[in-house]
């Protein structure tokens, strides 16, 4: 399934850096950088879901946004469907937009409260297609059917819907232009447990129906295990491990992945009593002032001397499994 030669790569990211400048003093001098995304490389194959997990502040959302060029990257290349979009001008970029779409975390904040559902879903069609009004309405109805919204609600406003239904509106809008690639930025984080499953199943059904490729950003490791084919784990701006789902969850290579997985509370009281948990001490360091050497060296339970002065390279240690850790640098 993860045979590189047989699968087409849709998204290629190489050496991506996104630094936000820190300016201080009267002259707003550039005195440092918040290294939100710091030298990240990965591929996403056509039709797969790449899960991107990490704690808050690790740069996973920034990474998702910069991959769609919602920010201009500091360094690195992003190519989507064979086109390098990392340096394209806004005009050329606009032509690429129908291919790549995004579903946002907070359906309340990402839908305009003054637009009806039909207007919201139809806006990308107005912007990017030459459909006539009647054709557009047909397409809007089709999209509403696809995401499980009742057509009768087309003229209602977002506040009349529940959180799960609002997220369906956001998904319908993302689907409007038949995209190939969708970045889902914590699409279920704001939803209740029983509604999360509805939205995740919808995303999976749509993927099968339309052959979509997802970058699924989430802090919920159990949901990512459910939806993703491969998983990338981020810590402080860097991907520390990238592996096929089953390998990553059963035998994590990086000590951070291991700690993160063992911190997830399992819905099973018996497992809690027997579990041998690794509890990380301390907090994530500031991305404006990351530690010298490996970013994880301040919290790593298996830290070595070399970790304090040398940053481990991100390399393939087993077929399809990438890790950035000195433990695997033999």
């Amino acid at each position: 399934m993860f045979d590189d030669t047989s699968r087409k790569t849709l998204v290629t990211v190489r050496g991506l850096k996104m630094y936000f400048p820190i300016r201080t003093g009267l002259l707003r001098r550039h005195t440092g950088d918040v290294k939100a995304v710091d030298d990240v490389s990965f591929d996403i194959y056509e039709g797969e879901t790449l899960g991107l997990v990490g704690e808050s502040g690790c740069g996973k959302s920034t990474c998702g946004r910069v991959v769609l060029r919602l920010y201009d990257p500091t360094e690195g290349t992003i190519s989507i469907d064979g086109t390098d979009i990392s340096t394209q001008g806004q005009g050329a970029l606009r032509k690429m937009r129908p291919v790549m779409q995004m579903v946002f975390q907070d359906p309340q904040a990402s839908l305009n409260p003054r637009m009806t559902v039909a207007d919201i879903i139809g806006e990308p069609l107005v912007e990017h297609t030459k459909l006539k009004k009647a054709e557009r309405l047909d397409r809007i109805y089709d999209l509403m059917d696809a995401v499980g919204l009742n057509r009768d609600f087309a003229n209602r406003y977002p506040h009349e819907f529940s959180g799960g239904q609002r997220q369906r509106i956001g998904i319908a809008r993302a689907l409007a232009l038949n995209p190939k690639f969708i970045v889902c930025d914590e699409p279920i984080a704001a939803l209740d447990v029983s509604i999360q499953a509805q939205v995740v199943n919808l995303l999976e059904e749509l993927q099968e129906e339309f052959g979509l490729t997802y970058l699924f950003i989430s802090h919920d490791l159990s949901m990512v295990r459910h939806i993703a084919d491969r998983v990338a784990v981020m810590y402080l701006g860097k991907i520390v491990e990238l592996a096929p789902r089953d390998g990553l969850y059963t035998a994590p290579l990086h000590p951070y992945t291991e700690a993160l997985l063992s911190a997830v509370p399992e819905p099973d009281p018996v497992a809690h009593d027997t579990a041998n948990r690794t509890i990380l001490q301390g907090d994530v360091p500031s991305p404006a002032n990351p530690p010298k050497g490996c970013n994880f060296c301040t919290r790593c339970p298996r830290v070595m001397d070399i970790c304090h002065h040398e940053d481990p390279a991100f390399r393939e240690v087993q077929p399809g499994r990438f890790v950035a850790c000195h433990l695997h640098n033999s």
């Binding site: 704690e55 802090h219 993160l260 509370p265 990380l280 001490q281 907090d283």
Partner: peptide
């Protein structure tokens, strides 16, 4: 809170 911090607080 994040999961690793949540685990600390639960303990």
């Amino acid at each position: 809170l994040d999961v690793t911090i949540q685990a600390q607080i639960l303990e």
